[in-house]
């Protein structure tokens, strides 16, 4: 049973990791806790749902359409709600409240258009099961784990190896200096939002397929868990988001399995606090040096 629970945990954790990647990326560059990321994830799964159900679009095409749609949404959101704040002499919390405003707006927009009920996501992929000793794993579980790992590696490549990535890192270190060095900071931030939001959409579609359910309210809790995962791994760190997501998922599942299912979220957050006390910047996070 332990092995089966471990598989359950890793799968759940991978879904958290998928959402956490977008979170951590935006945070890493502009230090904004983008609360609306959970909503982007929700919108992404709705785009795919509508395409698949109403327009009979192939799931792979719907997957990329959702990513594209959310990419546009993310850039728009940055343009309207965050960029004006960046140019004013504002504190970071104003941007946070603005993000909360966007999040409330988006979830209620979808609620109005679609109604509050949970909608079934059609079974677009035939289930197949493989045995590993006493446990079993499905093709969908493998798909989710593989895709989240692949996206993490791809993202890591972009940030660490490409020119855009270099500009991103420079922007995250010091926005003003980066600007003086000729980096178009606005463009870099917009690209960051584009990538982060399309990752959120990818997560939304995969989670929609995996759990068969999509609802306008799914963003909030998922966003919270993903945020937790990102912090656990060390916010701003891409491998950290993956690690944090998987750890959180495994901790939750093992908590249900061996402690008590009625304390599920308390166990998850309790572990978070304990880890932060031991490692105050998350597992893979770097302690920022403070200039005096």
């Amino acid at each position: 049973m332990f092995l089966q629970q471990l598989i359950n945990g890793v799968t759940l954790g991978s879904t958290y990791a998928l959402i956490a990647l977008g979170y951590t990326m935006v945070y890493g560059i502009i230090l904004l806790i983008n609360f609306a990321h959970g909503e982007i994830y929700m919108v992404g799964s709705f785009i795919a749902l509508i395409l698949v159900v109403s327009y009979k679009v192939n799931i792979v095409a719907a997957f990329f359409a959702a990513m594209l749609g959310c990419m546009i949404l993310g850039v728009l959101m940055e343009r309207i709600a965050y960029r004006p704040l960046r140019h004013k002499n504002s504190n970071r919390l104003s941007a946070l409240i603005s993000a909360i405003g966007v999040s409330i707006f988006l979830s209620n927009l979808v609620l109005m258009l679609r109604g509050p009920q949970t909608t079934r996501f059609p079974d677009v992929i035939e289930y197949q099961f493989y045995s590993i000793g006493p446990a079993q794993i499905s093709n969908l579980q493998i798909l989710i784990i593989v895709i989240s790992a692949a996206l993490m590696l791809g993202l890591q490549y972009i940030v660490m190896r490409t020119k855009v990535g270099k500009a991103m890192r420079a922007t995250s270190m010091d926005m003003q200096t980066a600007y003086l060095m000729g980096i178009n900071v606005n463009r870099i931030v917009a690209i960051t939002f584009a990538i982060g939001s399309s990752l959120g959409a990818a997560a939304g579609v995969l989670v929609g397929i995996y759990f068969n359910a999509v609802s306008p309210l799914m963003g909030t809790m998922a966003g919270m868990k993903a945020f937790t995962a990102a912090v656990l791994g060390g916010i701003g760190s891409i491998p950290g988001a993956m690690l944090g997501g998987v750890l959180l998922g495994v901790a939750e599942v093992l908590g249900v399995a061996y402690l008590s299912s009625s304390y599920r979220d308390a166990i998850a957050f309790g572990i978070l606090i304990i880890i932060l006390l031991i490692k105050p910047s998350g597992i893979l996070g770097q302690r920022a040096l403070k200039k005096v």
Binding site: N8, L12, V207, M218, V253, L254, V256, S261
Partner: peptide
């Protein structure tokens, strides 16, 4: 949405 752990138990 995730009930995997409970069902395994």
């Amino acid at each position: 949405t995730d009930f995997s752990a409970q069902i395994t138990k």
